Computed example of a mutant assay.
Amino acid sequence: MNLSAVLPLKFEKGKTNSFEQCKLLFQSLLKFGQNLHFEEFLVVTPKQDMASIEQELELYSAHLPLRFIDEKNLIPDAMNRKGVGGWRKQQLIKLAVSSIVRSTYYITFDADVLLKNTISNEDLIINGKALLQHQHKSVRPLWWKGSAEILKVDPEMDTLGMNVTPAILHTQTVQNLKNHLSQMEGRTWINQLLLSYHGLPKSLWKKSIPWTEYSLYYLFLSNLGKLEEVHQLAKKPVLVSSKSVWSTVDFDQWDPTIAFQQDKVPFLVVQSNKQIPIENLRDKLSPYLN
């Protein structure tokens, strides 16, 4: 089954240095992704960063079908809007790419994801259905309640939802979701989602409503009754390892050997916003990625 990938990326130094961390993602894809074939690998960046990012990632272009996209072309309504920061732009980008993706499914990446086991497309898309890793909605209840409010559906908080990046999305379903959002009140889907942000007339401002791309996607698909038409549902980890690192304390005590050699779930997250020094991260990971 054909599969594409999307990675929102910004060129930055200091702070979380997610750009340097993304090189570890690409190293992991080269080491463990020999049987993983992407129709396209979309790297979505601010225009001012694109030349630098293309140059820095040139090494990986020989092995991966990288295509660099100006974020402004995907999410024009979100540009120069007060309060729309990097995390929110990433979420919009992961929905917006469905308009240009040519494959049936696409997988979402962030710079802090790693591939740690050898896998193929057939391991991720089984009998034409993409893996979807469940997570209970009680883990992040505000996301589910906010998304349900936007979609005007019942959040069904006592049921399972889906986990976060990396996730595999059905391209046509994301398109249908965006069309649905646009038809709700006659705005573009981006403006519909950004009603709680500055930029539209004050009369349209609403109390801030939390949402994510995944909670919107899952609720939309679930309410259509089509989850199992396009996804293989899994209650246990099948995409994101439980051996992921979510804090600096986790990292200090983390043994990569367990994650890379004993745990068979393909992807790992070492969360970039915890400001783990990139040198420390390289030191721990280099024996497994080189």
Rank of each mutant, 00 (worst) to 15 (best):
R67E: 12
I69R: 01
I69P: 00
E71A: 12
N73T: 15
N73V: 13
L74E: 03
I75W: 00
P76L: 15
P76Y: 13
P76R: 06
P76I: 10
P76M: 07
A78E: 04
M79T: 08
N80F: 14
N80R: 15
N80A: 12
K82V: 13
K82C: 11
V84E: 01
G86C: 11
W87K: 07
W87P: 02
R88K: 09
R88S: 12
Q91D: 06
L92N: 00
I93M: 01
L95S: 04
L95A: 08
L95P: 02
A96H: 02
A96G: 09
S98A: 15
S99D: 15
S99L: 11
V101M: 05
R102C: 11
S103C: 07
S103W: 03
S103K: 10
T104L: 05
T104Q: 09
Y105G: 01
T108P: 03
T108L: 03
T108G: 04
T108V: 06
D110P: 04
A111V: 03
A111R: 00
D112A: 06
L114S: 00
L114Q: 02
L115P: 02
L115H: 05
L115Y: 06
L115A: 06
K116L: 04
N117A: 11
N117I: 04
N117E: 13
T118V: 10
I119S: 01
I119G: 07
I119C: 02
I119R: 01
E122L: 12
D123T: 08
L124A: 01
L124M: 06
I125F: 03
I125H: 02
I125G: 00
I125D: 01
I126A: 03
N127D: 14
G128A: 14
G128W: 09
K129E: 10
A130L: 06
A130V: 10
A130Q: 03
L131E: 07
L131T: 04
L131N: 03
L132K: 02
Q133G: 04
Q133M: 06
H134D: 05
Q135H: 06
H136M: 11
V139F: 14
V139H: 09
